[in-house]
Design a protein around this nucleic acid. Structure first.
Lengths: 209, 209
DNA sequence: CGCTAATCTAGAACAAGTTACAGACTTGAT
DNA sequence: ATCAAGTCTGTAACTTGTTCTAGATTAGCG
């Protein structure tokens, strides 16, 4: 009977030992490093295992597929970003501006490691049902970041819908950029466009300059 | 010098012979059939080749990768849908309604063959730079469908931005549905939410600039 | 018709994700 | 300290996308 290693932080199935936690971290670092070098294709399970000083089977015990591994890597990076963003909150006057500013800041961070971004985002959108819980965690993290930027403590259902759509746009716009079908400027426009939805749902609605 | 077989209809590189056109069609049909049965994973290149009565090497000459093949399959299906939709245009009163109605109709069509949808959409979002031209064709087709539904002959830049965001949302919402992370109802809400952007950009809409 | 280049076929070979397994090592409870 | 259960390692095998090759077929042209 084999207990699963939980890639998640939330529901602690078996509390990992020190060495296990260290292994997990080595694996995630190796993954991020290889990804930063050569993108999705460069994250090869055998190489990750070797770079992390771990047997291939062990890698698969911690992360049951390459997709799981990369989604976990994204979780990890998002967490960093979230704490970074919290330190310097966006300065815009209204929620829409602040969200756009936050996303553009995240976007600029991704531009610094485009290959890593490629690996993570491709994994995220390629993930099938088997990875849903992990992908959901990423989604919740993203939602949290956006809500933080809005500064809305108790979002209305309409506002949550707007946030969902913003997330959709964010992911899809990233993909078009990563695959070279949209410029950075275009992504900026798309983000700003979708953020106007927030105005639609804010108290006195639709007028904004 | 080996001439490429053009997966596209538009720029005729070498005009395919009758038998080649037939091969291409057999391949696309085989692909769609296998996809409809078991989704992305069931479209195995060897099986497609056999089902189409074609050698593996030939399959790769027509479609240089599995992703190319599935994106071409999507092009094919989209074309069907576009002509179908033209026959019975949406009846809504304003553009936003019509676009939402059209997308929901397309969504219902996809629901009838969820596995096929899975294969096509996964391929689309997984496609890397090498497939950009083909993915772009799909994107243009989608744009055409949405603009048709809007009924706007000369869209303003803002309207085009809105359409881009709608497309982003459409793709990403499909993915969340296909991977079981969002319900049909939720997709409906997302589509309706994003379509409100159209109102923002229509003449008497909220504001501009 | 007869040639030449391009295309097609069949099948082997290669690459990377994934699985399987035997044996060594930890860990935790007694 | 000891034992059982669970982990880790190293390695081979299997799967499926992709590439390669040699020989048969086809298409277009003089």
């Amino acid at each position: 009977m084999t207990a699963d290693i939980r890639a998640d932080h939330r529901p602690a199935s078996p509390p990992l030992t020190e060495r296990q936690e260290a292994r997990r971290r080595r694996i995630l670092n190796a993954s991020a490093q290889l990804a930063a070098r050569g993108g999705f294709d460069a994250v090869q399970m055998r190489e990750v295992a070797e770079a992390a000083g771990v047997a291939l089977g062990t890698l698969y015990r911690y992360f049951p597929s390459k997709i799981h591994l990369l989604v976990a890597t994204m979780q990890d990076q998002l967490q960093h970003m979230h704490t970074t963003l919290r330190k310097r909150p966006p300065a815009g006057a209204d929620p829409a501006e602040r969200v756009a500013e936050t996303l553009m800041r995240a976007f600029r961070a991704l531009q610094r490691e485009p290959q890593l971004a490629d690996a993570m985002v491709r994994a995220l959108t390629f993930a099938d049902r088997g990875v849903s819980p992990e992908v959901d965690t990423v989604s919740r993290l993203t939602t949290a970041i956006i809500l933080d930027a809005m500064g809305t403590d108790h979002p209305t259902p309409q506002q949550l819908s707007a946030v969902r759509v913003i997330e959709h746009t964010w992911h899809s716009a990233l993909i078009t950029w990563l695959s070279g079908r949209a410029s950075i400027a275009q992504v900026k426009i798309d983000i700003e466009t979708v953020c106007r939805l927030i105005d639609l749902t804010s108290p006195e609605g639709a007028t904004r300059r």
